[in-house]
Design a protein around this nucleic acid. Structure first.
Lengths: 250, 250
DNA sequence: CGAGGTCGTTGATCTCAATCAATTTGCCAC
DNA sequence: GTGGCAAATTGATTGAGATCAACGACCTCG
């Protein structure tokens, strides 16, 4: 699927990379942008061929994964609305990008986009910042993979989904800041197998730990992949995470 | 320790970020650069305060680490000569940077450097690229932490040190490309405890796996932290790594 | 309706690495 | 040399999570 777009009505206009662009610049980028929709489990980019395009996620969840020769798999990143997909200035992506849900991307052809980036230092600066944030997130995940117990991993994962859900739905973190009550209901965007691949566990362990968190009264499960979090603060404690601090990005 | 410098005689002049700069630009950056030496285990940047400076590594090895509230530690990155230390455009580093060996840095004061970066799009582009490479490396390490066995982790680590050693000593990968023979001798830049923290293992497991690789005839240990690798190809197999491929970076 | 599918849960067992506990080695100061 | 200390090795045991296996809950499709 493929269609022309207008940035004016774009749901992620101000959160995505385009947020820093002037009206004139938006014109330019609008001219080369097109939308594509991907079905769940559809491959977006593979780790072999040079990608033809990059894209911002308008809606949906994308998983970035690596596979070892013998089939062991590790999800190395989850990308949500307004995140950027693809590695500029290289002929290959070193991982797969797959749609975890139905995904709508705002795409740019590789060459055109790279030229545009070099022309617009503000855009490159914004992408640079975004990459720095991704690097920080990857390193935080390394702590989870290297040092956390299965239970902490599951709690951390639920926490991550909660945070991303809040970020997308206009930052309601004000009225529940540190108390963190409020019986949140969220939808997990991944299957058990995907969660296992993201957390460096097996499906069975993931399942058992969900049951365990439920019996400990920390979460409840509902229809489908819905989860009820009773107290985000407690969840964060179980996740073994420090209280989030202001990174103070310019 | 602190001293003025001259880029002309700098050992990493062409490998580091400065490699893309014009003579005029080098002048500018030279004007604000100063050298600092750090003793082994000396803290370079912490995860709490706003750093006062960034720096390129001229010599030595720097470990980037994160610590959980209860003391569990994970090394999230190792940085070698020509790598950049510090996170620009944020008021905090989200991790510690510590000297693993004696380290010489070419430093720039935060504000001055950030201004310079915004003035020189080529420099920012270079830093962006470097950050993308770091992100790829972090994600590759996530596979190790999430999916590899203790033996594979140790082999991967030795492999990494071999690669970095070769990169610094002028890329001798030509004459031993795929055959990979040649009884390489390398010096591990970390203690057993640090290796454990890097690989998500315990000291004891690290020690046992070294012994195991030795008894399997894959490596030999020598005086101090020296290691003899008999066949890099075999080591790469044990590490569970695919044959390295050209990423084709512009 | 039932067959076949994926997805998730639960149970029994096993295994790899963690933990606990001694040593041993190497190094520096004296 | 010897004492003292950190780093590393080695052994015995435990335990968290993997593996193997069975089963239940939902799908869709005929």
């Amino acid at each position: 699927m493929l269609s022309a777009i207008s940035c004016d009505t774009c749901a992620i206009r101000h959160r995505a990379l385009c947020g820093v662009l002037s009206a004139e610049e938006i014109q330019k980028i609008n001219a080369i942008a097109f939308r594509r929709t991907f079905a769940p489990n559809e491959m977006i980019l593979n780790d072999r061929e040079t990608p033809e395009f990059f894209g911002n996620i308008i809606s949906g969840v994308v998983k970035l994964s690596k596979m070892m020769a013998d089939g062991r798999q590790q999800i190395v990143g989850l990308q949500f609305a307004s995140d950027f997909i693809g590695r500029p200035f290289a002929t290959r992506n070193p991982f797969f990008a797959e749609a975890a849900s139905e995904v709508v991307l705002c795409c740019f052809r590789k060459k055109q986009f790279e030229d545009l980036v070099r022309e617009m230092p503000d855009l490159e600066h914004r992408m640079f910042q975004h990459t720095l944030d991704e690097l920080d997130a990857a390193r935080a995940w390394m702590v989870l993979l290297g040092r956390k117990s299965a239970e902490e991993r599951i709690a951390s994962f639920i926490n991550l989904v909660v945070e991303r859900a809040q970020a997308s739905s206009g930052c309601r973190s004000d009225f529940m800041a540190d108390s963190g009550a409020a019986n949140l209901r969220i939808e997990l965007p991944l299957t058990r197998a995907e969660i296992a691949d993201y957390l460096g566990l097996t499906i069975e362990t993931v399942s058992r730990q969900f049951t365990r968190l439920k019996s400990r009264g920390i979460i409840d499960t509902a229809k489908g992949r819905q989860i009820l979090v009773h107290d985000v603060g407690v969840l964060r404690d179980v996740a073994g995470e420090e209280d989030p601090v202001n990174l103070g990005i310019d």
